[in-house]
Amino acid sequence: MHRRQLLAAAALLPLPALAQPAWPSRPVRMVSSAPPAGASDILTRTVAAQLQEQTGQPFVVENRPGAGGVVGSDFVAKSAPDGHTWITTNVGPQAIFRQLRRDLPYDTRTDFKHVTLLATLPLVLIVGKDQPFRNLAEYLAAAKAKPGEMNFGSGGNGTLHHLTGELVNRTAGVQITHVPYRGAQAAANDVIGGRIEGMWDSLPSAAPHIRNGVVRAIAVSTDRRSAAFPDVPTLKEQGVDVATINWFGLAGPGRVPDEIVQAMYVQLRRALQSEPVKARFATIGVDPGGEPPDVTQRFVLSEIDRWSEVVRQVGVTLD
């Protein structure tokens, strides 16, 4: 089923009337596998604040960055399955790395239970304000004029941001060199400082820099423009037939009881439908999720197959 149809169907579903366990019974740890100010961190903190208000229990955000999200994911996969440790995860550590990393310390098919998608969002290509490119055509023309000399940054090797850049290279026939960073903010600092020409970033973390005028947004990766930045055209509008979309979901260890997953889903769906969360998500250019756990679990498993094929096509390795 198409992603938008899933969202529409989920919005019509009544909240389950099942008896729920006495959860949460103590503070809940919400792990972000990215450094502060990244998209994962922003979404996690937004949702955690609302969950805390709803439940009366502290929802404590803990940043555990590293290896493109693998460090935090592994920590949660091995945590006690009592419903008090969760992670905001995404396509990289859940789907892409299954193909890229033979030493992945967890099994993405069995070591997590997915509650729901928190949000879907575009990636955005940003360049420094002093760079000469005003649009994608000028950016690609400069890359063709000096193959391999221009750089694009990302929050890490094998991330969706990295693969999106490689897909653009392959489709547009250019050679822009990837420079991995330990998180999006570090890469953004080098774009702002003019040390690299541009980067692919998630819209929530790039939005403040775009609005402050220290970077210029020249393309979004999705097949439609972002409502938050309607003046930024898509890759396809500018002649490059590439479309990718980032997603973030909440997951717990694979052995979390189903009744606790359901209890968390009830609270999360309520949070995603709340006015504070909807307003914040609209500001940073993301669409809220809310699909039931079984639908979300199937979606994540389908993403593993999809991105395994993309990795093979693009030929990205972590060697």
Results as ranks from 00 to 15, higher is better:
129 K>L: 00
130 D>P: 02
134 R>L: 13
135 N>V: 01
135 N>C: 04
137 A>P: 08
139 Y>M: 14
140 L>I: 07
141 A>H: 05
141 A>T: 05
143 A>N: 05
144 K>E: 11
145 A>V: 06
148 G>D: 04
149 E>C: 07
149 E>A: 15
150 M>A: 12
151 N>F: 14
152 F>C: 00
153 G>L: 08
154 S>N: 13
154 S>P: 05
158 G>P: 01
159 T>A: 02
160 L>W: 01
161 H>V: 08
161 H>D: 12
162 H>G: 06
165 G>V: 09
165 G>N: 07
166 E>Y: 12
167 L>F: 13
167 L>N: 08
168 V>W: 10
170 R>S: 14
170 R>H: 14
171 T>K: 14
171 T>W: 01
172 A>G: 11
173 G>H: 07
173 G>C: 05
174 V>N: 00
174 V>P: 00
174 V>T: 14
175 Q>P: 06
175 Q>A: 14
178 H>F: 01
179 V>W: 09
181 Y>C: 04
181 Y>T: 06
182 R>S: 14
183 G>L: 03
184 A>E: 13
185 Q>N: 14
187 A>P: 07
188 A>I: 14
188 A>Q: 13
188 A>E: 12
188 A>H: 10
189 N>D: 11
191 V>F: 09
192 I>K: 11
192 I>G: 06
193 G>L: 11
196 I>L: 13
197 E>W: 11
198 G>V: 10
200 W>T: 02
200 W>L: 11
200 W>A: 02
201 D>A: 15
204 P>I: 09
205 S>N: 10
206 A>P: 12
207 A>S: 13
207 A>E: 15
208 P>R: 10
208 P>G: 05
208 P>Q: 06
209 H>L: 15
209 H>C: 11
209 H>I: 04
210 I>S: 03
211 R>H: 10
211 R>F: 05
213 G>K: 02
213 G>H: 08
215 V>R: 11
216 R>K: 15
217 A>R: 07
218 I>V: 09
218 I>A: 08
219 A>S: 14
219 A>L: 08
221 S>K: 08
221 S>F: 01
221 S>I: 00
223 D>H: 12
223 D>V: 03
223 D>W: 06
223 D>P: 07
225 R>H: 04
226 S>P: 01
227 A>Y: 03
227 A>I: 00
228 A>T: 00
229 F>G: 02
229 F>Q: 00
230 P>K: 03
230 P>V: 02
230 P>H: 01
231 D>E: 15
231 D>P: 02
231 D>F: 04
231 D>I: 00
232 V>H: 01
232 V>K: 05
232 V>N: 01
235 L>Y: 14
236 K>D: 05
236 K>G: 09
236 K>I: 13
237 E>N: 08
237 E>M: 06
